[in-house]
């Protein structure tokens, strides 16, 4: 099983599309409704970050089979200004946009694995994974 969806993000409608596509794929992978919602919420936060800080970018969601487990891999990429202090951006309540500052740290709490690569002028790539609880 390998499937992928790609959603360009350049307006608020794309945030809704990105999280809906992610939810559909998570449903296909057999995630519970609770986990589908968790994945959709995490996608919504990182897609909004793209729009807010980089204006445009993309979110891909891929089904992943790894030996004994099934999951989804979400990758959000942009060529925006990048983040100068990644550690700080991952702190609850820290925001340079007047938002709640819960986007990145919240998404990290929602997912099982979370990685962020960013540097000023280099854009930002966030990779998040969620694994299905084995039955």
């Amino acid at each position: 099983m390998r499937e992928e969806t790609l959603q360009p993000v350049s307006s608020d409608v794309d945030i809704v599309s990105a999280r809906q596509k992610g939810r559909e794929l998570a449903a296909k992978a057999g995630f519970s409704e609770g986990d589908q919602t968790v994945i959709a919420a995490a996608i919504s936060e990182i897609a909004r970050n793209i729009l807010m800080y980089a204006k445009r970018g993309e979110v891909s969601v891929t089904l992943a089979n790894s030996e004994d487990r099934i999951g989804v891999i979400v990758v959000a990429r942009d060529q925006g200004p990048g983040i100068s202090d990644v550690a700080r951006a991952l702190q609850d309540g820290y925001s340079t946009s007047g938002g709640l500052g819960l986007g990145l740290p919240g998404a990290r709490r929602l997912m099982d694995e979370f990685e962020i690569h960013s540097a000023p002028g280099q854009g930002t790539t966030v990779t998040m994974k969620k694994w299905r609880r084995s039955a």
Partner: peptide, 9 residues
């Protein structure tokens, strides 16, 4: 509600 609390909302 579950996802909101995990997000810190």
């Amino acid at each position: 509600a579950f996802a909101m609390v995990q997000l810190g909302l």
